[in-house]
Nucleic acid binder design. Sequence first.
DNA 1: TTGTAAGCGTTATCAT
DNA 2: ATGATAACGCTTACAA
Lengths: 337, 337
Amino acid sequence: MSSASERARLPSIRDVARLAGVSHQTVSRVLNDHASIRPETKAKVLDAIAVLDYRPNLAARALVTSKSNMLGILSATIGEFGPTSSIASIEDAAREEGYSVSTLNLAATTPEAIGSAVRQLAREQVDGIVVLAPQVRVFHVLRGMAVSLPFVSLQTASGSDGVSLSADQVAGARAATEHLIGLGHSDILHLAGPQDWIEAESRMRGYLDALREADLPTFPPIRGDWSADFGYFAGQELSRRRDFTAVFAANDLMAIGLLHGFRDTGIRVPEDVSVVGFDDVPVAAHVAPTLTTVHQDFPELGRRAVKILLAQIRGEQVPSFGPLQTTLRLRESSGSR
Amino acid sequence: MSSASERARLPSIRDVARLAGVSHQTVSRVLNDHASIRPETKAKVLDAIAVLDYRPNLAARALVTSKSNMLGILSATIGEFGPTSSIASIEDAAREEGYSVSTLNLAATTPEAIGSAVRQLAREQVDGIVVLAPQVRVFHVLRGMAVSLPFVSLQTASGSDGVSLSADQVAGARAATEHLIGLGHSDILHLAGPQDWIEAESRMRGYLDALREADLPTFPPIRGDWSADFGYFAGQELSRRRDFTAVFAANDLMAIGLLHGFRDTGIRVPEDVSVVGFDDVPVAAHVAPTLTTVHQDFPELGRRAVKILLAQIRGEQVPSFGPLQTTLRLRESSGSR
DNA sequence: TTGTAAGCGTTATCAT
DNA sequence: ATGATAACGCTTACAA
C-alpha cells in the first residue's frame, strides 16, 4: 500500500522514459513523431505510454512552444440559430484538427469591450480567433487593434481587408426579392436588421438591387432588432398602411412575428400580403402559414472558417472558397398577386 | 531602430522586475496580492506592469500550479434553445469569476465517446466540467469513470449521487397537465422525448403524476425526438385517432410541429384539441395559435451551475439552491373543453 | 539514432 | 518585506 501522504502525480515524459529505458528526449520524439527513431525503440516507448496511460501536459507544451493548440471564438450573437449552429461546427472541426476551443461572449460591442475580449483570448494563448460579431464596428476595432493573432470572420464586411468568408447574403436576399417580383408583386417592403449589422446591410442591399433592376419602387426599410417580438410590433404598425403587398424580412424570427401581427390585424398571408424570411430556422416549415425563406448552410460556414484559420496559423496557402450558396425554400407564406 | 532579426517577445515577469528594480519573485507576489509587501514597492511594480503592458502567461501559471483557471463544458445537445442559452450564461458567469471556458460537443453518447471527451477535457487541464448531456447513460458512464475532476450536471438524474441541479421539470410538467385538467380535459396524451433523456422522463413523470392524482386515464406516451418534424408527423398520425382532447408535448418544437400536423388534417386548436408545450422558446408566443407552454429560466440555471462548480473546485461550502421555479405561460393553444 | 543540457514563465520554498 | 533557487513538464538546441 502506498502511503496516504503520497501525492498522486500524473505520469510525465520522464516516467515513460524510465519505464522504456530511454531518455525523456526520445519519448518526446516519439510523441511528435520525429523522423529518425528506430521502430523498436518507438514500440518500447509506445508501450510504456500505454502502460502508464500517459497524456502529455498541454500547459507545459504550450509554455515551451508558445502555441496552445487552442482556437478562440469571439461571439456577439447570443443564442441565435445561425451563429449557434456555426459555433457548434467550428468546435467540431477544430477538435478534429486537434485544436480545442475557448468561447467568449461579447456583452457589449464597445471598443473597450472588444479590446479586452481580444486581449483576454490572447492571454489564453489562443493560436487564432474566429469572430462571430457581425457588427460593423467590431471590424473597425479589430482592424484598428492591429492584432498579430490570425483571425477569421464569419461575416464579410464590405471593403474588409481581413480574411473573411460568408454565405452570399446579397445573392440570397436578391433571390428572395426576385421571387416576390416573379409572383407579381411590385410594392415590396423590407423589414431590416439593426443598422450596424453587416448581414442586415447585405440583405438590404440584395433587396434594393433586385428592386432597382426591376424598376420597382423602393421603400425606406423598417429597422428591426431581429426579434420575433419586433416583427409582431411591425406587423401591427404596417396594418394601418396598406400600400404594399409583400414583405421581405431580414430573418425568420422577425418574419414569424410579422405573420402573427398580420394575423391579429386581419391581414391574410399570402392572400393579402406575401412574406419571405431569411435563415430557414427549424420551425419555419411549421408555422402557419409555413414560411418561405432563404436557407443557409451554417455548419459548412463554420467548417470553412476553421480551415481558413488553421491555414493561416500554419502558414499554409489559405484556401479560397467560392461564396457559399444560399437556396430559396418555397413555402406557403408567399403567393402570387 | 531595433534589428529586424530581433524576435518580438512578450514582457515577462523578469522584465517587470528589472524595470521596477526588484526581484521577479516580488513581482509574482504583487500579482497574487500576497500579504506582506510594502505599499511603495507594490506601486513601483504596478507601474512597471502598466508601462510594459505586461500580461501573465497563463500556460506557465497552469504548468506550475496545475490549475488552468479553465472550465470545460461537455455538451450533447446541439443547437437546442434551452441548453444553448444555458451555455452562454455559463460562459459569462465563468469569465466573471476569472475562468475561461472550453466547450466540447459530444458526437455520440457511447461510453467510448464520453470517456474520450472527458479525458480530452482533463488533458486540457480544465479545473472542472459542466455537463449538459441529459442522456441517462451519460451519467452512468461519468459515475463509472470515477473522475477525480469536479463536475456538475445541469440535469438531475434520479438517484444521482453527483452534484447536480435543475429546474423542477416534474413540477412544470405537472402544472402543465393540471392546467389541461382544470380546463375540463380528461383524455390527455403525452408527446414525450426520447427514452434515454432525463428531462423526457421527468416531464413524463409530471404528466403521469397529475393524471393519477386526478384519477384520469393515462395513455402510453408517444416517443418523439424533440424535433418539430416529428411533431408534425405525430399530428398527422393522431388525426386518425380521436380518443383525446388534449396533448402535452415535452417541448415546444414538437408542439409547434404538432400544431402544423393538426392544421393540415383539419383538427382545430384549441377548439378540437388543446396543446401545451415546454420551454417557452422565443417563437412560442408568435406561432398560430400562440402556444401555451412552461417557461424555464435557462440563464439562471447556467449561473447556478458555475457557482456550484467553483465552490467544489475551491473546496468551499457548495451552495444548495432550491429547485428552479418553472412558470406556466397561458396562451391560445389551450382552451376549455 | 539517441542522449545531455538549457530554457520557456511562473509559483513555491527557504533563506535573509 | 524581499531575494535566491528550485521546481513544473515539455521542446529546442547541440553533442555523441
